[in-house]
C-alpha cells in the first residue's frame, strides 16, 4: 500500500478549483495562519478591529501581499498565499461572518445564491473531479 510521495502530491493539482493544504502551502502561510490564531483571544480581536494596519505591523514576517489580502478579506487569495480555511475562520468569525458567508465569497456567487445552491442539493461533482480526465 506504500504510495510514492511525488505521485501522491502531484494528483492534488489535478482537482479543479482546489488547493490542498500541503506542507509547501503550510510553510508559505505559516505567519498568516499564526496571525489568525492570535484572534482566538478577545483582547487581540478588539485591538485588530480597532486598527487593523497597526495590528498587522506586529507581524513583521508576513509579506505585504498577505497583509493586503487580509485587509481586503480576500479569502481566495489568502489560500493561494498559504492560508488555511480553519485558521482564516478566526478572521471571519471576528467579523461576525459564518463559514457559509465567507466560503461563498470564493465562488463568484452572492451569499444568497450560494445558500440556495446548498439548499437544492449543493454543487454537483460532475466535471469537477479531474482537470485532465474532465469527469
Amino acid at each position: 500500500m506504500k504510495q510514492n510521495i511525488h505521485e501522491y502530491l502531484a494528483e492534488f493539482d489535478d482537482i479543479p478549483g482546489t488547493r490542498v493544504y500541503t506542507t509547501a502551502r503550510a510553510r508559505k502561510g505559516y505567519w498568516v495562519n499564526q496571525f489568525a490564531m492570535s484572534l482566538m483571544k478577545d483582547e487581540n480581536r478588539k485591538r485588530w478591529l480597532a486598527d487593523e494596519k497597526a495590528y498587522l505591523d506586529e507581524w513583521p514576517n508576513m509579506t505585504q501581499e498577505q497583509k493586503d489580502a487580509l485587509l481586503a478579506r480576500d479569502y481566495d487569495k489568502l489560500l493561494d498565499l498559504g492560508g488555511n480555511i480553519y485558521f482564516l475562520a478566526k478572521v471571519f468569525s471576528t467579523d461576525g461572518k459564518s463559514y457559509l458567508q465567507a466560503v461563498s465569497t470564493m465562488t463568484g456567487m452572492s451569499v444568497e445564491e450560494y445558500r440556495n445552491m446548498m439548499l437544492s442539493g449543493g454543487r454537483s461533482p460532475e466535471g469537477l473531479r479531474s482537470k485532465k480526465k474532465g469527469y
Binding site: Y75, V103, S104, G108, R123, P125, L128
Partner: peptide
C-alpha cells in the same frame, strides 16, 4: 460527509458517493 470550504468548487456535495 461531502463538503468543500474553498475556491470555485466550494459547496460540492456528492450524495451518491
Amino acid at each position: 460527509m461531502s463538503h468543500q470550504l474553498q475556491g470555485t468548487r466550494a459547496g460540492l456535495i456528492n450524495a451518491e458517493w
